[in-house]
Nucleic acid binder design. Structure first.
Lengths: 152, 152
DNA sequence: CCTCATGGTTTTAATTTGAAACCATCGTAT
DNA sequence: ATACGATGGTTTCAAATTAAAACCATGAGG
């Protein structure tokens, strides 16, 4: 599961997380978890993937501390899979993925699910990256800075 | 390359984009492209992946309209790979991934690259999702709404 | 007990990945 | 012209991963 990571990536902040969720299914499992799914069978039914693969993915998500198992819930003797704090931290990423998908993978008039404010049912705004002073910044306004103390 | 997508996913807005960038390398290529890399050899050197794999990934990114080739630049007879509008649309997603990585994949004192405001060198703020009225909303404040007209 | 539902693991085949070798094109020096 | 190195790939083949299906374990209900 763990892939070798090149030099630059060890401190890059992008490659490391990809090791945890960088495959097709893991993010979909997390999304389903956000939608309230908890049981092995629910995930399998929703995603339609082989049970061994789901098993492996859940194991990986558990190993990375993105999900955890909780003993019961409705009295059944099985366990449930729920997001940890770390897993819930993926919310902005999923929103970003969803908004990108809406922008470029659907026809303007094509129906798709919408992320809405639970309070009033209105769609949420677009994600915006802001600088310390509050300016909205895009790619061209930012740069990456390497850590001052040269590690490695 | 194209994976079968279950019913719910066809309109979900998350699964579709994953088909385009849902593997380990593609996002790293895009990140490198944001960092200014353009040439086949540059990507290969930076990422340290096999040439055939890089070739396949670039082909896929081209096919999905995330990158495009431009004929020259510095006079050399080769082509360069640059992000399209669609590709640049991945910026928020990469920021989200990076911020999640910073939060959970590095020790508090561990060195890592930082995304900073080009204007003054200060780190950017965290991504925040806001409702129409400007409230910052989290997972629990939102829900997904299926399209009213039942498609399929 | 027998049987069913749930939640997996094992087995086996197909696909994907990766390393290395090979090849094509252009620019340059001879 | 022609050898040669740099760049940008493709082909080949072994190894790892994924997927489908069969199998197994546990507890609940009859």
């Amino acid at each position: 599961m763990a892939k070798r990571v090149s030099h630059r990536d060890s401190i890059c902040g992008v490659a490391r997380p990809l090791d945890a969720i960088g495959d097709w299914w893991s993010l979909l499992i997390v999304r389903d978890a956000f939608d309230g799914l908890r049981r092995f069978g629910e995930f399998q039914k929703s995603l339609g993937l082989a049970k061994n693969i789901l098993s492996a993915r859940l194991r990986n998500l558990l190993a990375h501390g993105i999900m955890e198992t909780v003993p019961a819930a409705d009295g059944s003797p099985y366990q449930e899979y729920v997001l940890t704090e770390k897993g819930r931290g993926l919310f902005p990423l999923l929103v970003a993925l969803r908004q990108w998908g809406e922008d470029f993978f659907f026809e303007p008039d094509e129906a798709h699910v919408l992320l809405v404010d639970r309070k009033n049912g209105l769609p949420v705004r677009r994600l915006e990256l802001r600088a310390q002073d509050g300016r909205v910044v895009g790619v061209e306004d930012t740069m990456v800075r390497l850590p001052s103390a040269s590690a490695e």
